[in-house]
Amino acid sequence: MKGMSLIVKTITNVMIGFIFIYGVYIILHGHLTPGGGFAGGVIIAGALVLRVLAYGSEAGAEKRSETRASIFESIGALLFVGIAIAGLMLAGVFFRNFLPKGVPLNLLSGGIIPFCNIAISFKVGAGLFSIFLSLAAVKYVMKD
């Protein structure tokens, strides 16, 4: 995919870190403020998509990062199911909130909820990014 003009690249350089950190904030504060794993994951996917659109990428690189994104997505899915099975093992119920509840409104509170948010954010962010990459790489597939 071809990159965009110098103006777009410069503004992307300035903005992409802020977008990424905003996504991480939405994920980590998902159990305290509006937002959560899904919204934060989509924001992070948006930052990655912005980078690919602004700077462009070659066909081989797209394929490689698609594979990497799929691996991250599977890690997120396994993490989510792993938390559920840990509840089954340690407390006897699938998806049991087995961790201590903590003080309300603290960052470390809510038991498994923040960890579930992180797992879902991996899944959603990497999943959407790999959908975008496989759609972006389609032209090269047709040419082959």
Partner: peptide, 8 residues
């Protein structure tokens, strides 16, 4: 649950 965001 200990989470302050009811939706989560």
């Amino acid at each position: 649950t200990g989470g302050a965001n009811l939706v989560a």
